[in-house]
Amino acid sequence: MISVKNIEKKFGKLIALDQVSLEMEAGKSYALIGPNGSGKTTLIKSLLGLVVPSAGEILIDGKTILNDWKYREKIGYMPQIGRYPENMRIGQLFDMMKNIRQEVTKTDEELLEAFKLYKIFDKRMHALSGGTRQKVSACLAFLFHAPILILDEPTAGLDPVAVEILKEKVLHEKRMGKLLIITSHILSDLEELSTEMVYLYEGRLQYHNSIAMLKEETNESRLNKAVATLIKQKELLASVTE
C-alpha cells in the first residue's frame, strides 16, 4: 500500500533520512521506533507531504505523492503535539474539519462518544489540557474512515482510561484491515498494537521485520528487552565497522 523508495532528506548539513526504503501493507500495524532525532517524525511528515524528500519517492497505492494532495484522503493523522487554531472551540474545530472534507458524509464518531468530548464542545482550544488535546487529535485521525492511520506518540499524556479506549479503537481498526503506523516510546503499548517493527537510527533504516521474528532473533520474549538487545547489537556492529 505504501512504498517508500530510497528517500533522503537533508536539512542543511543534517541528514534526517538517508536512503530509506520501506514497503508497508494494509492490515498490518507498524511500530516505528528509534531514539530522538532518528528521523521518525520526518518520515511521517514525508508521508503526509508536509516535508518534501530531497531524493527518492513515496508511492501510495502505486502512485507517487509528489505534487499530489488527493491521496491525503486516505490518511488519518494524529500528530505528536496537536496544534490547532487556539481560539477555536472544539465543536467549531470538528465542524470545520467536516466542512472541509464534505465529500465524506458518514464520519466515525465512536471515539468522540467514548471520550465524551461532546460535553466540552464549547471549550476553546487554548483552554485544553495536553491530554484533552490528544483526545481531540485522536478523534480527528479516525473521523474520516481513512485506510491509513498514522499515530505519532498516541498515548503520551493520556490518562489510563483514555489509553485503553484508544488501544481498543486501534485494534479494532487493525482488524478492519487498515494500515497503521505508530510511533511510541512506550514499547509495551507497541507490543499490543503492532505486528511489525521499523527501527530507525540516525536517519537509516536499521531493522524492519515482524515483532515475532525480532523476538525470535534476539531470544527475548518481551519487546522492550528485544529492542534493547537489538540496539546493543547494532551499536556493536557500528563500532566494529568504524
Partner: peptide, 16 residues
C-alpha cells in the same frame, strides 16, 4: 498566528 491552522489544513486532502 495561523501556522497551526495551515499545518492542520496541509495534512488534509487540500492543495498547498
Amino acid at each position: 498566528n495561523s501556522y497551526e491552522f495551515m499545518e492542520l489544513m496541509l495534512a488534509q486532502p487540500i492543495h498547498r
